[in-house]
Design a binder for these strands. Structure first.
Lengths: 336, 336
DNA sequence: TTGTAAGCGTTATCAC
DNA sequence: GTGATAACGCTTACAA
């Protein structure tokens, strides 16, 4: 902690120029080399650093990007944070983080808070996009990019994963490697990913000619490890599946754990496939086959979209689709 | 996106009071109930939201807390983010995130950037605290709380883990359960945790009467999974240890992976112990015994310390010690 | 209690 | 290109 900070006036006086010239020199706006020299030197000498609040107030730019996601502890969002952070830093901006707990009201509160203009834009990941979101997004004074599902009626840029097709592909792969009783451990059905992945699972069954069996379906109350473990345990009390597709890697991790506890061999007796292809996949045992939904790419695309939109607020809203791709690892080799 | 925003003047005019009264009413400063009523109603009606930059500029408080850590992707820092986020939100503030990559220059740049006054305070996690840090921290206009090691000569609040004692305890536990060739997979020795945990390992050997063997020491070039895998693989080329203590859970995860690949049973042939007791422990197979270094508590303590210090900048610098505790799980049961 | 008015530190708009 | 000067939107003395 230190004392009195120099302001731009300090610098201007020291350099014998007006504050206007000082400001211009410091912001890279054309000046005489002489002025530029004197100003930068003076700034250097007194250790001048511009005040963020003052420059935001006048310039109407905060240099901050906000990112709101359901849960910081989920590796998939962590990966997104890392991607966004890169883009943000490359642009000399700062990242403001919000963890919403997946709560819709919380999400809406954050969008509403944008009216404070604490950030130049927001990247929002929501599991439950509603009309309320559309309405609130419409009132935002700064651009918002949604990672999730394109919202009809909202003029916002969107980045989407093709998780439906990804889930279907996973089912086809399991079928192709000889599995016939393919269970599905999903998260809450009323979420966007929950609904889409369920559809993908059904698509996959249809494509392979397998029947949809209620007894092969389980949903965790959340896309987390424990719900995955519990859901799988319930599944195993019925006629045993020979493969389990999980709606994300956390659920799959829970599934692996439940299978270990039951003494079932993976992939020998039961194959397991996750979704997200997160860092978890190389960490669990056996390594997890997973559907890559391009989290890092989605986050990067969202960040870049946002930065462009901030610079050019009037351009048309865009939707970017990021394809899914199955990444095969140990957890779904051949059946025993 | 929308159009012209109402300012406090809009509200004041509508309520037929001065802007000063409007400001007071909105900030909970004593006014006539009548004035309060009219102002809040007017604010409500026009959807007034105060401008963050303007209020920061005048009040000299940004309502933002910054957190700088080596790596967002490391679950231990993720846990810290979650803890800090809670405190920050409870105080109605925002969290600004910086991932430094463990780079000292990056860390120093962030501290320097505080002079912009973009945040009211900073929580800094550094793996390599130096005199440069002391110097730069001394120049910060806002308080900084360090999570790491107390810095001599710096007037900053600090939160420390007792990782030295924790490592020693892990060694003692392994010895007590019959292990005699206890290896140590460490991260870079020139880091604060690397150095401390090494000392703890040596303490533990001494306490149990085991000899320090060079061949049982390995260091990864980083506290990550891959270096852990590689270090363990190197270790296994020599005379086999019957236990491996790892300097953190990521290294331990890599160790487990290398052991699986070598076909060695855990804990039957080799016991494994990690440090940090992160979310990873319940996710890997077998579940990882780990030394809890109180990450969540440290982060929470740091955040609370910072908030208090912001409110009361002159109070004495404090150092909080968070104790370590071994959490026993499957990876270190009895030897075969 | 309330209103008046003076900034907070910048950047943007003018004439020059 | 440069220098006055007026905002930016708010908080806070100070006087009433």
């Amino acid at each position: 902690m230190a004392d009195k900070r120099p302001t731009i006036t300090t610098v201007a006086n020291l350099a014998n120029v007006s504050v206007a010239s000082a400001s211009r020199a410091l912001n890279g706006i054309k000046t005489t080399p002489d002025v530029y020299e004197r100003v930068t030197e003076a700034a250097e000498r007194v250790g001048y650093v511009p005040n963020a609040a003052a420059s935001s107030l006048r310039s109407r730019r905060t240099g901050q990007i906000a990112f709101a996601m359901p849960d910081v502890a989920n590796p998939i969002y962590t990966a997104m944070v890392a991607s966004i952070q890169e883009v943000v830093r490359a642009g000399g901006m700062r990242l403001v983080l919000h963890s919403t707990g997946g709560d819709v009201d919380e999400e809406l509160a954050i969008v509403r808070d944008l009216r404070r203009r604490f950030a130049d834009g927001l990247i929002l990941v929501s599991l439950r996009l509603s009309d309320d979101h559309v309405a609130e997004l419409g009132r935002s004074p700064v651009p918002v990019v949604v990672i999730g599902r394109a919202l009809r009626g909202a003029r916002v840029d969107t980045v989407q994963a093709d998780s439906r097709r990804g889930a279907a592909e996973a089912v086809r792969h399991l079928h192709a490697s000889g599995r016939r009783r393919i269970a599905f451990v999903n998260g809450p059905l009323e979420t966007v990913p929950g609904a889409q992945r369920h559809e993908g699972y059904v698509d996959g069954l249809r494509a392979t000619g397998l029947a949809l069996e209620e007894s092969l379906l389980e949903t965790g109350e959340d896309f987390m490890v424990e719900p995955g473990r519990a859901a799988t345990a319930r599944l195993l009390q019925r006629e045993r599946p020979d493969a389990i597709l999980c709606a994300n890697d956390l659920l799959a991790t829970g599934a692996l754990s439940a299978l270990h506890d039951s003494g079932l061999a993976v992939p020998g007796e039961v194959a397991v496939v996750g979704m997200d292809n997160s860092a978890l996949c190389d960490v669990v045992y056996p390594r997890l086959t997973s559907v890559d939904l391009g989290a890092a790419r989605r986050a990067q695309a969202a960040a870049e979209l946002l930065v462009k939109r901030i610079e050019q607020p009037t351009r048309r809203a865009r939707t970017i689709d990021v394809p899914a791709a199955l990444v095969v690892r140990e957890s779904c080799g051949a059946a025993a």
